[in-house]
Amino acid sequence: MTYLFNDPINFREDMIEGYVAAYSRMVERIPDASGVRIAGGAHKGKVGVLVGGGSGHYPAFCGMVGRGFATGAVIGDVFTSPPGEQCYRCGKGVDGGAGVVFSYGRYSGDVMNFSMGEMRLEMEGIDVRQVIVTDDVAASPNFDERRGVAGDFYVFKALGASAWRGDSLDTVEALGNRVNQWTRTFGIAFSGCTLPGKSEPLFTVAPGKMELGMGIHGEPGIETGDMASASEIAKLLVDKVLSDAPLDAPSRAAVMINGLGATKYEEMFVLYGSVHKLLQAAGIDIYKPLVGEFATSLNMAGCSLTVSWMDAELQALYDYPVESPAFTTWG
C-alpha cells in the first residue's frame, strides 16, 4: 500500500512541495517547471547535469541534486517519464552557459520525452548531450537496449563530479558514458508495489517465490524462481552480474546493494556479507561499497546488486565530495 497521499492526481506536486520545503538548504524549485535544482541555481560556466524520470524511485532522481552531484532533476508522475516540455524547462533551468547533459535510465518514454526537450533546447542554441544509463543485465542481451536501474547512481555521480570541477561538455559526456559501459545490475523482488490511491499491487509474487530481473516500475520479472536463503540469493545476484562483466574493465569496482523500497537495511547487510565474500573470491577489488536505497520502486520488496568497475580516472569522480539530500560524502 501507499498510505500517505491526498488526491492521487496531485501526488507528484504534493511530493515536490514537501521535498523542497524539507531540503531548501540544498535544492530549490525550478520556476514554472516540474523539477528541482541546486539551491541558488545553475552555476555560470559549468555544464548543467539534468537527471530525471518518473517519481516513485527516491532517492532517484531528485535526491541526487546538489554540490558535486546533479545540477537538477526533472520529475515526472509516479513511474511516468516527464513530458518533453518539462525536460525542456528543467534543462533550461540548469543551463549555466556551458551546455547541458541529460542523464536517465533507458526507458522508451524517457528517451522520447528527453529527446523532445533536447530538440527545443538545441533550437535555442543550447548544446545538449544525452548519457543514457543501460545497466540492467536482465533487460536484454544487447547492452544498448537495456533498462537503466540502480546503476544510475554511479553515472550521475561521475557526471556531477566532472561538471562541478569544471570539465568541458565533451569531457563530462564521455566520462558519464565510460561509467555506464562498466556498470551492471541485476535485481530480484519479493513483492509487487502499489500505486498511490490503488488497492491492488501491480503484480503479486506467490508465497515461496521471487521474481528475477524486474525493473523499477512495478513490471514483473523476466522469470520466477523459488525463494532462497540470503546466501543463495547472493550467489544468484553475483553470478548474474559477473556473467555479464565487461571484458575490458580493471579489477577494482564499486559495489552496491540497492533496496527497492520495502526491504530492511539489516536484511541487505545480511545479503551483503555473502556478496562481499563471493565478489572477493571472484577477484573483484571491492572499493567503497554501498548498502541502502538508491533507486526504489515505491514499496516493492526486493533488492539489486550493482557492480561498477572503475579505473583511476573514474575512481576520482566516485571519490569527489558531494552534498545532496540523499547522499553526502567528503571523499
Binding site: 508522475d77 511516468t80 513530458p83 516540455e85 518514454g109 520525452n113 523532445m116
Partner: peptide, 11 residues
C-alpha cells in the same frame, strides 16, 4: 504531449 508524460504521452 506537454502534460501526460511517458511514452504514450509523447506518442
Amino acid at each position: 504531449a506537454n502534460t501526460a508524460g511517458g511514452a504514450s504521452g509523447a506518442l
